[in-house]
Design a protein around this nucleic acid. Sequence first.
DNA 1: AAATTCTTTGCAAACGATTTCGAAAAATGT
DNA 2: ACATTTTTCGAAATCGTTTGCAAAGAATTT
Lengths: 347, 347
Amino acid sequence: MNLCKGRSYMDQVNLKKLAKELNLAVSTVSRALRDSHEISSQTKERVRELALKLGFQPNPHASSLRQNKSKTIAVIIPEIENNFFSQVINGIESITPNKGYHVLIYLSHEDYNKERDILQLLGNGRVDGVMISFSNSTTNYEHVEAWQKAGIPLVFFDRTCDELDVPNVMTNDAEMAFKATEHLLKRGCKNIAFLGMAGSLSITNRRKVGYLQALEKFKVTNPPQIVELTSKDYSNREILRQLFEGPSRPDGIFAAIEKFAVNTYEVCKEMDLHIPQDVKVISFSNLQAAALFDPPLSTIIQPAYDIGREAASILFKLIEKKMLLPYEKKMILPSQLIERNSTAITG
Amino acid sequence: MNLCKGRSYMDQVNLKKLAKELNLAVSTVSRALRDSHEISSQTKERVRELALKLGFQPNPHASSLRQNKSKTIAVIIPEIENNFFSQVINGIESITPNKGYHVLIYLSHEDYNKERDILQLLGNGRVDGVMISFSNSTTNYEHVEAWQKAGIPLVFFDRTCDELDVPNVMTNDAEMAFKATEHLLKRGCKNIAFLGMAGSLSITNRRKVGYLQALEKFKVTNPPQIVELTSKDYSNREILRQLFEGPSRPDGIFAAIEKFAVNTYEVCKEMDLHIPQDVKVISFSNLQAAALFDPPLSTIIQPAYDIGREAASILFKLIEKKMLLPYEKKMILPSQLIERNSTAITG
DNA sequence: AAATTCTTTGCAAACGATTTCGAAAAATGT
DNA sequence: ACATTTTTCGAAATCGTTTGCAAAGAATTT
C-alpha cells in the first residue's frame, strides 16, 4: 500500500513539483515556461533554470486534453513496402519536426474496411489532421464524409478523390500517361497494354485516360488492352503469362505501378521474351535501381518527396486555420519521364 | 462570448453527455463501457446502445492522462527510403493494431543529435515504449542511458548495441558475412573489398568480422580492403571509382548495405567494368528487384518483416510487464543467401 | 494625496475519463 | 423479522496542464 503520494519514479517531474520547489503557484510556473508576458523576467529565469536542471517536460496528454489539440497528424497509406510511399513519408517528415508535430503511420493494406476503421479510430481527438492515400478497394467515401463531420483537417495525396471538397496533392498522371504511351508509339509499338491496379483508384483512372487519349490521338488501330492487376505478385505473373501467350500479344507495356513493371520483367525473363526487342516497357516508378535493370527500365518518376512535403504544408495550413491559396486546393506536381533501354528502338 | 457551455461541435459526445441522456452517473457509464462486473447487464446494454448510436469514442488524452499510458509506441529509424526499414515497419504494424496500439515514426537521418533529441522528446509519457535502430553517427549511448532512467520499455533492432542491457533483435550478420565472403572466394575472387557504412554501426562491425574471419580461414594472401561509404550516393561513387582505378583493384565486392551494391553497379557501368567477369558482387539487400538487375544481384536477404514483428512482440511483453524468455533478450533471425549471376563463375 | 493604471502572482475551475470509497437497494441466510 | 452479504450505482478525487479571474503591490496619473 502506498502511504506517501509519491509514485515509483520519484524523479517524475511536473509543474506541481517545480512550483513547490520554487515556492510559486503552479499557474505561475506554467505561464513562465510558456513565456507569458504577465510573468516577470526574474521569475521566468528562476523557473526556466530549475526546469532545465530537473529536465522538466510537460505531460503531452494533459496539454492535449486541456488545449484540445494533439500535436499529432496521421498518415494513412495502403502499403509501405513501396518506394513511392516511403519517399512521401520522408517528405512529410521534413515538415513535422519543425512544427513540433508527431506522425502516426497507419496501413490500410489496400483494404477498405481497414481504412474505414482507422479513420474512425482517429475520430476523437487523437490527431489534429490526417493525410490519406486511398486503398484500391475504396469505392465509396462514406468514411471520409463521416470524418469530415468532425471538422478535422484532411488532405488527400496521390490516390485522391475528386468527389469531395478536400485539398489534394498529386502528379500530372494523365499527361504523363499520355507521354509514356506516345513514347512507346514513337518507338514503334503497335499494340500497347496498360497495366493498372484493379479497383477504382483515381490514379489508375487518370493514367488510363492518358493512355487512351494517346491511342486515339495517334489513331492506333489495335484496340486498347487494359489489364487489371493486384498487389499479389503471384497472381499478377499468372495474368501476365496469359497476356503474353494470348492471341494479341502486346509489343508494349505501360505499367501504371512500379510493381507491375517488376512483374512484367519477371515474366518476360521466365518466358524468354526480350525487352525491348519483343516488348518494350515503361512504368511509373520511383526506384533508383531502375537504371540497373536488365535492360534499364524507362520510368516516369513522381515527385514523391515533394508530394509529401506539400501535402503536409497544406495540412498544417488547415490546422492553423489559414486560408488556402487557390492552387493549394488541387496541387499538381509534375513527374519526369526518363527514357532508358527498355523502350529503345531495335533493329 | 460563449454563454452556453456547448462548444462549436454540438455533436462532441463524451461520458457526461451519455450520462445525462441516460440519467446515470458518469462513473456508471464509464464502468458499463469497460464491461465492469459491478454494472448490471441491463444497464450495460442501455449504455452500449446509446454509445453506439451516438458514435461515442473515449477521449484518448483523458484516458492516457488518467491511466498513465499512451497506447502508442515509437519507432526510430535512420532513414525510411530503404526497403529493409519499410519491411520492418510492416512487421511492426502486423502486431500493433491487434494490441490497440498506435505507431509513431521518427527519422534520425543518420544524425546522432537528432536521435538524441527524438528520444528526449518522447520522455514524458507520449509513448509506452520505443523501438530503435541506431544512426551511423551514434558512437555513444548516453541518450539511451538517460532514457532508461525513465524506466520506459525499449528494444533495439538491426543496428543494435551490445553494451547496454536492452533486448535486441537482429540477424546473423557475422555468419552471413562469412558465407558471402566464402561464396565470393569459391567463385574465384582473390581480392575482395568490403563496403561498410562509415561510423561504428554494430551491423557493419559484425559483418566486417565475418568478412575478416572468412579471409583468414581461407588463407587469402591479399590484405583485406575495408571501404567506408556513407548515405550520400555522390561521394560513394567517387570513392568506388578511386577504388577501381587504384593499384589493387578488387575482383570481388561484398556490400554490407544494399545502397552500396547499387552504387557499385552504377560505377561499374560507368567505367565499363563487367559484372561478374571483371568483378563479382554480393550484397545484403531486401530488394525484390535484385533478380532483375543486369546482372541479377546475389543477395543476402534479411528477415526484415520478422525482425519488426518479433521486436514489436518483445516490446509489448515489456510493456505488459511479462518476463522475457532467455532467447528473447537477444533474438537472432537468420538471413538467406541467394546466389545469382553477379557472382557467377566466368570462363 | 487620492485615484487610476500596470505588473505580477495566486486561486480555482476547467479538460474527460478512471477509480476509490461509500451508500443505498436487493438478495440471501438465520 | 432481522442480520448479513451481494449487487448496483453515485459523489468526488485524480491525472498534469492551462486559463479566467481576483487580488495585492508597485507605478503612474490626476
